[in-house]
Design a binder for these strands. Structure first.
Lengths: 208, 208, 208, 208
DNA sequence: AATGAATGAGCGTTCATTCAT
DNA sequence: TATGAATGAACGCTCATTCAT
């Protein structure tokens, strides 16, 4: 007899397993990269048969994409969280940076980076909607524009270039070597990097 | 009869072929990425047999590494070129940036990026000496220190963090999307990015 | 409480489901062929779990064989239907041809053909009794003999060869290309094919 | 040093191996059918590595198609051999039948039949040109038309239907059971089958 | 030294069959 | 009894590497 309890138990177990698969996949991808991560190895590490993997994800790419999308969605949600309009544009952007760096081990950032740059995965990424990524970009862009309008940021610098620089210099991946060296704490690094970035885009004082 | 001349002639030919192989490998990797570059294709494009490739490089990774190393050496030589000591630290760093971007198509930058991030190659790279990369870093670091000493750059920001930011925000790859969109020219982009970076690390004017 | 009624009710339901499975299997095999018919799809279309399929048929081949056998039985029954003895042998054979072609879409004929020629199924077919097929053959053979005895058919042609020719030229599958082209109607095609066949085996007029 | 002799020796060996592969493939397909013939098994039986198979044929289908096309080409050539115009249409068609039955074991006929009817292979066949098949058909059709014009065959029967019947009743496959039973010799069977067919399509004597 | 045919481990994916529930 | 999640052997195909010539 099927009761809702049964169903939800099954569903819960299924979800747990799916999470485990994604977790293991993440580990392997971090170790070996996208191409060298085989479905065999993921299955073996999870402790299930290869076929079982395919009950959860129809293709290798789907597995990887599931992870990627899940993370990006979390990011998007955090980014689109309503923020007090009284905050400065810089403060709003800093809150986004802090979301990006929430994961202290940097695992997530590394993983997204690997997937984002993987030769094969790029195709999947293009096929599937880039919507989430674009919405994230759009939010950052809107804060940059707002900062310009408010006189915080230099209107002479194109917003696109500010945006591109934002993601390149403030992403967790960019400074992973520093984090590993442990010369500085994660927070210290980010404090200085943000200092550099926000000074860099700041509206220059008027020199008479 | 084997004479030294013979030997060196042979040796010269061998060297030339090796260069050709590396050149071709570069082209193919740029077109297809690391994993989709097959030894077959390299051999075919060079016009030699696949076996001959293996007389020069025992493994695919070795070939790629040789190539990577060669590019880094070129870069290092350019970077270590003596520069007029009268130049500002910023000017010296800008000349390094211009070396990084010398190649307008971004070929070299892309290539190094692909290899540097390539999944299997990472391991090779870690095993082999990172000496060349470190010497390049050291040079940039020395200019940064010099800038601090001269009062150009903010001594409050750790040099390591300046260095890490330098490579993340000023590398050709970082802004490849902008280059592709062709909203801005390559030079425009680099002009603004450098503006951001150097303002970002500049010694702040004393506020009384 | 298990009563005979219960048993037979259950048994009846079981039988109904088995028929449904066979019916569905037929549809899928016709659409996709033997090998591309998966147990998954059959179960899904029937609306039962895959495991349940295996309570009825231990192997895929068994299911297919059951189905094959059922069709052949239907055919045999039709063929063995008593016929007026006054009919000519040719008329009797023509009624068998019309049974073979009864189904205008050629469904049954196609199906038997697919199974009969299907690669893996061949083996099963050989292992299981070919009894039904032989009884059908025997009936046709008896009509051919009868026709010879009556002076309708040429006694100089061995009956085996007439039989073999009967099934090869009069089977629905043989002329499927013609049916598809729709240059001729199904009935037209069969009219002419039978004309060819029966003229071919007819007792020749005595040439003085 | 490469001499023409070397090349041609290599080429000869290659050709021999290719023939061997096709031979083995034929055996396996005859035993197991198209789908159940695995590249692994072919390689194992030939005594080469699986990869080597792919040096000769890029896809499983290509291997099968190579065989199919080769046989059909042979057939076409024989069929298009110039024939004395003085021969009757029937004699011309009989010579085609004798070509079809040249292979006494019937192996070739069976193989072509299996391929021609294989669910997967059909696609390949449709993609590749059906030119050869059509040219063979065209030849037979032209002889049938000729026979009608000459008063040999019945003009009341559509040529398409004669053609379809020709291939269904006169193909080696149609009577394979008879050949196996060895009740009659191959030639006897064909003698009678042709008798049936040609009588069947003959122009009827005028009945006054 | 140079060749390129041959190798075979490895890949992603499928699906008939099993079995704990 | 009925389920459907889990299995794992098998498939077609690729390609870095080897080795007889």
């Amino acid at each position: 007899m099927k009761t809702p309890e049964h169903r939800s138990l099954k569903e819960k177990q299924r979800q747990e397993r799916e999470d485990l698969i994604l977790q293991v996949a993440q580990d392997v991808v971090l170790e070996k990269g996208y191409r060298d991560t085989s479905m065999d190895e993921i299955a073996a590490r999870v402790g299930i048969a290869k076929g079982t993997l395919y009950l959860h994800f129809a293709k290798k790419e789907d597995l990887m994409f599931a992870f990627f999308e899940r993370e990006m969605q979390k990011f998007l949600q955090a980014v689109e969280q309503p923020v007090s309009t009284e905050l400065s544009a810089q403060a709003k952007l800093e809150s986004i940076v802090s979301i990006m760096h929430k994961d202290h081990t940097g695992k997530r950032g590394n993983l997204l980076y690997i997937l984002f740059n993987s030769e094969d995965f790029k195709i999947t990424l293009q096929q599937k909607s880039l919507d989430t990524l674009q919405r994230i970009s759009a939010k950052v862009r809107s804060y940059l524009e707002e900062g310009k309008a408010r006189g915080e940021f230099d209107p002479a610098i194109p917003t696109s270039i500010m945006l591109s620089s934002f993601f390149s210099v403030l992403s967790p991946r960019a400074h992973r070597q520093l984090f590993q060296l442990e010369e500085f704490s994660h927070d210290e690094v980010m404090f200085f990097v943000q200092k550099i970035y926000f000074r860099g885009i700041a509206k220059p004082a008027i020199v008479s």
